[in-house]
């Protein structure tokens, strides 16, 4: 009883203490940003990413959004523009085409970030992308586009009068950026709804932390489409998913053949699970999506790269 009294008294007085304070709220928001102006690229992103998909496409370096454990540099703006165009055309739009306008609006990450340099790990491997909690995808090595394409400026000097892009090495562009983004997106999908755990049993006991210690061929023989896939079950899953979409059918079939009787069979069984998971959970026919992507890869040269 005593105790009850004590606390009641305390509560009353503390309330009084709070009640005494009278301070009017300022009508000005404390969050302001009058310094940094929008660019025309920002306006394009508003129309092509933020408004239709609610995706914030981050191309200007913000240290709080980057991984502090790496030494990084920002991407060159023109490469961010090219990546933004490419990702829209070969990642966002294909899903919309096989589902509806709501699908990517609901399931795409809320933030996409492009970083210019690679993120180098201590073990001499290179981080190409990350997906965080279904909310954010970061693409690294944006500045490497310089090696894979030539930018032809209309005035032969700079981008002020427009430009067009000649992709010199489509396989590398496909690997470093598109494969990476499909890979990270598959992580987001399974982070939202897990795939059937049967998948994890197919190569049980074969997963190794040091994935760089085996060759691509050895990985295939064990039933992995890439040696990185052998690093963990979830990585295996998203590698099957992303390579099935971004490799041509010939390259995919060659990989299955490289796996031999054992590996090839495992890859086929993994793909079957990926396909049924995508169909049952997300209503997406992987073969239809793959066909749409193949068509769009062929159409990439028709993109107007500098219409903003």
């Amino acid at each position: 009883m005593k105790r009850l009294f004590k606390y009641t008294l305390l509560a009353v007085f503390s309330l009084m203490a709070v009640a005494c304070s009278e301070e009017e709220l300022s009508d000005q928001s404390v969050i302001t940003n009058s310094v940094n102006q929008e660019t025309e690229f920002d306006a394009w992103l508003e129309q092509n990413y933020r408004a239709p998909f609610n995706i914030r496409f981050l191309y200007r370096y913000e240290d709080i959004e980057t991984d502090m454990s790496y030494d990084l540099v920002p991407a060159k703006e023109i490469y961010s523009r090219i990546i933004a165009k490419m990702v829209r055309f070969l990642w966002l739009d294909p899903y919309t085409e096989v589902t509806n306008a709501h699908f990517m609006r609901s399931h795409s990450p809320r933030m996409m970030q492009v970083i210019g340099s690679g993120a180098y790990n201590q073990n001499n491997t290179l981080l190409l992308g990350t997906a965080e909690g279904g909310q954010k995808i970061t693409l690294y090595v944006g500045n490497w586009l310089e090696r894979f394409m030539t930018i032809h400026y209309n005035n032969n000097v700079d981008d002020t009068e427009g430009y067009w892009v000649e992709i010199l090495d489509p396989d590398q562009v496909n690997y470093y950026y598109l494969h990476t983004i499909h890979h990270e997106f598959a992580h987001i999908l399974h982070q939202k709804k897990m795939y059937p755990l049967d998948f994890n049993t197919i190569s049980q006991g074969e997963y190794v932390a040091q994935w760089t210690s085996i060759s691509e061929e050895e990985a295939a023989k064990k039933g992995f489409v890439s040696r990185y896939g052998s690093s963990a079950q979830t990585e295996d899953f998203v590698e099957v998913f992303s390579y099935y979409l971004t490799w041509s059918p010939e390259v995919w079939d060659a990989k299955v053949a490289q796996g031999g009787a054992v590996g090839g069979d495992r890859i086929r069984r993994k793909l079957a699970i990926v396909k049924s998971y995508m169909k049952d959970t997300w209503g997406i026919d992987m073969d239809e999506l793959r066909a749409v992507l193949a068509r769009r890869y062929a159409e990439i040269d028709r993109l107007d790269w500098s219409d903003f």
């Binding site: 191309y59 200007r60 370096y61 913000e62 240290d63 540099v73 920002p74 991407a75 060159k76 703006e77 490469y79 961010s80 210019g116 500045n143």
Partner: peptide, 8 residues
């Protein structure tokens, strides 16, 4: 207040 060279 930080000045950032935020594109390459």
């Amino acid at each position: 207040v930080v000045l950032t060279f935020d594109t390459f």
